[in-house]
Amino acid sequence: MKHLYSLRPRAHRYYRYTSFWVIFFGLTLPLAFAHPAFAQESPSVALVKPAGVDTNAISIGGTVIPYRSVTVAAQRAGRITALYARTGMMLQFNQPVAALDDDVLRQQIDGIKAELKAAQSDLDYAIFSMPGMDSAGGMMGAMMGAMFGAPGGSGVDAWLARVNRINQARARIDQLKAQERALQAQVGYGAVTAPMDGIVTRRLVEAGEIVQAGQPLIEMAYVSRLRAQFDIPVDLAQGVAPGRPFTLKTSDGRLIPVSVGEVAPGVDPRTHTQQVKVDLPPQSGLRLGDYVELLLARAGAASTGSVVIPAAALLRGSALPMVQVVTGDGTFKIMIVRVAERLPDGQLLISAGLSAGDVVKVQP
């Protein structure tokens, strides 16, 4: 019995050491065999995708512009007493934009009114100072007396001189009234208003500045409708006409259908490009100044049947462009393809040899 008790601690130590090694190998062996040195490498594959409109087209960069833009200028000289428009402010038609001082014009109008009173007084004197104007015969009696009352025609001369004086006084009055109307119009030009509904894109002056007639004050844009402007090379602009539909690509990858709204009649002799403006649909989500691309048909690229694959799918070292296509039983077969173009995003545009839905091996 004593010998049996002496063996119990030894058996306990043996069990403890055995358990330790079982747990150790149970945890480390799976990790060891998971190492790439022990694991069989599985090939990377990629799905052959159909070429979208952006891969079968040439992109021409452009900018979103307002449908219409105007420059609001001062119609007369003066000092800006108030400037109501601010950059980014929406204005309604005929809404006040700025106000110019009219102190000098008001003084000139007061001077014209004083001259009118003097001219009217001269006219009244010329009329009522003629002989016989205060008698019952009136003007006819004065005229007859002037013509036949004195020999030698001196009465006729005096009468004609007075008639001429009356006509001159009336002409002077008409002239002064015309000057007053012109000055009143100049006063009205001091109230600058918006010529259309739109947003203020630039403010070119500040309150307190002295401006001249024709000097720009603000720039406005009609943004209820937008356009995009492009400078297209001459060889690509052939066939571009108002009303023709195209596809627009935004900076975030959205494709928007558009139509040509305006085509410049001539070609820029420096850049050999033609300016084209396309009309954007409402609710396009674009803003003034956004960068967009107009997708034009690519010469020589198939409009249908083209696909895209990663550039790494091509077999290296082969004389012809070839790829490995995954078959139904999981093996690979080599296919010769026709590469139409290398795209900027690292993809290849394939015009023959593959179909959309095929799976190709991507070379490591």
Rank of each mutant, 00 (worst) to 15 (best):
A136S: 14
F246D: 02
S42H: 15
Q274D: 08
D174C: 09
A161E: 15
R203F: 01
L7W: 13
L204V: 01
A352I: 15
A182R: 14
A356Q: 11
R170L: 10
A171H: 12
A194I: 06
G330E: 12
M139A: 14
A161F: 09
R10C: 10
G330K: 07
L286W: 00
L29F: 06
A85P: 10
K117G: 08
V64C: 00
P96G: 06
G61Y: 05
T247E: 07
A302G: 10
A237L: 09
Q95N: 13
Q347A: 08
A312K: 01
A32D: 04
P344R: 04
G152H: 02
Y5A: 12
R227I: 04
G141M: 07
R270L: 13
V278F: 00
F38A: 14
T331R: 06
A34G: 08
R86C: 14
A99K: 14
A299G: 08
V45M: 10
G141L: 07
A57K: 00
H12R: 07
D268Q: 07
R338I: 10
T71W: 06
R76T: 06
K333L: 14
R225I: 00
L343M: 10
D157E: 09
Y14L: 15
D235G: 13
A221P: 01
A82D: 11
I166V: 05
G145L: 03
F332T: 10
L343R: 08
L343P: 04
R10A: 09
L255N: 12
R79H: 12
M220Y: 00
A185E: 15
I60K: 03
I60H: 05
G330F: 15
V156M: 06
G132R: 07
A194G: 09
I58M: 15
I112Q: 00
A51L: 05
A146Q: 07
G190V: 05
P344C: 04
F38L: 11
V339G: 02
I60A: 04
R13T: 11
S355D: 10
A136T: 12
I334Q: 14
A185F: 13
S121G: 08
A299P: 15
P151I: 04
D122A: 11
K117Q: 14
L204A: 01
L100R: 00
M140Y: 15
V360P: 01
R298Q: 13
K277P: 01
A185V: 12
